[in-house]
């Protein structure tokens, strides 16, 4: 079944053109600010204050990057932390999530609904900041550890529910029945049939998880004091919030002095560039799973 160029199977040429035009317009709207972010990060502070934002800086400068890499060691360390947390976290989370999603997708499992409810309940209700903090530090003793950056996000009710829906939809009960009659155990069915069939779902949930871990600064801000465990995003956040805090309180004399030492917008944008670029490069890796026809191989294999 190589690419059958049946005319029914394709979009009419005229509509194809319309959609391309529409998407191009959308793409331009989405990419302009990103280009602006990259441009500002390379604009000199003087020309920024004289001429405002420009897509093509009238005066190029690497000052913002130089400022950030003044703390070169910390950047490298933070990059390790972020990469480590993201990789470990995504892997761990995918395992837990897919196992649970599979259990919840089994219509013949009696406790499926209770478990689904217990899961969903946590999506709406939570104990709040202080109780979580007490549990995580006083009971689980996770403060200032690598694990506190991973465990709290490893089970997202949203992701489990999405993946469960994918599984229910793309895996027919008949296939599972057939496998069971052939004597396959639950683990075999899960590993050899369910997982391969759920690749688009896994890729979606995996991407979401990866983005959550990559973008997180909150857990760091709350639980991490050891500079060796400060992630990139938390670093960005610290820098940004210091700028915000000082500018909001700039009427007091002491803070005004601090203000002069802090780099302007250029540095903010530069840090953004540093964290944004890798994740944009990672996206195509996930993208290859969002392609039609991928599932056939799984069934027949």
């Amino acid at each position: 079944m190589e690419h059958t160029s049946n005319r029914f199977n394709q979009l009419p040429r005229s509509w194809n053109m319309v959609f391309h035009t529409l998407l191009t317009v959308l793409a331009v709207i989405c990419i302009i600010p990103i280009i602006l972010v990259y441009a500002i990060s390379f604009t000199s502070e003087a020309s920024l204050s004289a001429k405002g934002y420009q897509f093509w800086p009238s005066q190029w400068s690497l000052d913002a990057y130089r400022y950030i890499f003044r703390n070169g060691e910390q950047i490298v360390q933070s990059a390790y932390v972020t990469i480590g947390v993201t990789a470990m976290g995504t892997l761990f989370s995918l395992i837990v999530t897919s196992l649970f999603a599979y259990v919840l997708s089994r219509r013949d499992f009696r406790y499926r609904n209770i478990m689904a409810f217990l899961l969903f309940f946590t999506m709406l209700f939570n104990g709040g900041l202080v109780p979580s903090y007490i549990v995580n530090t006083n009971v689980l003793h996770l403060a200032d550890t690598f694990w506190i950056l991973i465990l709290p996000y490893s089970l997202s009710a949203f992701n489990v529910i999405i993946l469960r829906t994918f599984m229910q939809q793309s895996i027919e009960t008949a296939i599972l029945e057939a496998a069971r009659i052939d004597g396959a155990g639950e683990w075999y069915i899960f590993g050899r049939i369910v997982l391969p069939l759920s690749k688009p779902g896994l890729a979606t949930v995996g991407l979401f998880t990866l983005v959550t871990y990559w973008n997180d600064w909150f857990l760091g801000q709350l639980y991490i004091t050891n500079p060796k465990l400060v992630s990139l995003q938390y670093m960005l956040m610290k820098l940004q919030s210091n700028i915000d805090f000082v500018t909001n309180n700039a009427t007091s004399a002491t803070n005004n002095m601090l203000l002069a030492q802090i780099p302007a917008e250029g540095a903010r944008m530069a840090i953004l560039v540093i964290v944004l670029t890798p994740i944009l490069c990672a996206y195509p890796f996930f993208q290859k799973y969002f392609v039609k026809g991928l599932t056939i191989g799984g069934i027949k294999g």
Binding site: T122, G128, S132
Partner: peptide, 9 residues
């Protein structure tokens, strides 16, 4: 651990 224990809050 992460959802129901802090729920007493």
């Amino acid at each position: 651990l992460f959802n129901y224990m802090p729920m007493f809050g």
